[in-house]
Simulated assay, not measured.
Amino acid sequence: MSRPFAEVIGSPVRQSRSPATHNFWLNRASIDAGYSATEVTREELPDYVASRRGDTDWRGCNVTMPLKEAVLPLCDRLDPVAERIGAVNTIIREADGTLAGYNTDAAGFLEPIAADLRQPHLFRMARILGTGGAARAIVNALADRNFTLVLAGRNPAKAQAILDELPQGGEHHAVCMSHFATSTDFAFDNRSQLLDLVVNASPLGMTGQPPLEFDLSHAPPGSIIYDIVTSPPLTPLLKQGAAAGFRTVDGLAMLIGQAAAAFALFFGQAPDRSGDADLRRMLTA
């Protein structure tokens, strides 16, 4: 007997915590469906999408690096949020076989800082490291919430191109990733009612990847240090930030938030979030 399923695709994908997360919620809801991980390279992507399109049991997939931008032309339609961001992290197979591309990264990223965003601020600034699909979602989400952005990439021209796609009005800056690698003696404004974020939106610091070189002297007083890497959950950046007295947000917070939005799209109901503490303990065990 056939069984509905969804999956996460990317390369590498073996470190993904999405299967554990979605299966946790499926079990809690007693939904007879599954969720797994499938290694798909950029070269294999068109054949993968073509093979899944005709599978009526396939509810869709989450898309991780490096495929979030490459999958755009393979979708039949894009949700307006995904179209504006220019990256897809969730594909849904609709009843008629149409493949719809969504982006739940932005909502997932914002979830753990929602209370901060509800507060009034004199000025908001975010230093974002990375120029991939997740970074695009974060850039758009924070620009919408009146942040001035400094976007760092190994290729500053790519960072500038992402900023150029934003609506006019913000004073944003593109820099080379190495800008943040050495110390600075810049005298930051330490007034209250400022909101500063430092966001690692790159794979640097992930298990098997090169380390992220970020000198904490670039983090203004009171900054929130946010690392979207999930493997390991406690990255060197987060350890250093916590030791220096900064508030930190780990990648599991974003993972769970974006997964909850994707789960509702895949399975037609929101997950039970009352077990988030148990889910987090399971993911970090």
Rank of each mutant, 00 (worst) to 15 (best):
L216I: 03
Q269S: 13
G153W: 00
G205W: 05
L74Q: 12
R93C: 02
R154Q: 11
L110I: 14
I113E: 02
I128V: 15
Y102H: 08
A285C: 13
V88T: 04
G54R: 15
T90C: 14
A157P: 00
R247T: 14
A82L: 10
R247C: 05
D57H: 12
I138D: 01
I9D: 13
W58V: 09
A143S: 07
V13T: 14
Q240F: 06
A70P: 01
E83W: 09
L26W: 00
L122M: 08
R59E: 07
D272W: 11
R42Y: 04
V81W: 10
N62Q: 13
S274V: 06
G60M: 10
S16R: 05
Q258F: 11
A161N: 08
L252I: 09
A159G: 07
L142K: 05
I228C: 14
T235I: 15
I85V: 15
A174M: 09
Y102N: 01
R53K: 09
A141I: 01
D144I: 03
E213N: 12
G86S: 08
D189S: 12
R28P: 01
T230N: 11
G222I: 03
P19N: 13
E165I: 00
A106T: 02
A33M: 08
L163F: 04
G169M: 06
V150I: 10
S192L: 07
A264L: 07
A277Q: 12
A260C: 09
L238G: 15
I85G: 07
F5R: 11
D250T: 10
R118M: 09
K158P: 09
Q240K: 15
G241H: 12
P221C: 01
D79A: 09
L117F: 01
A187Q: 13
R145D: 01
G34I: 00
G241F: 07
L78W: 06
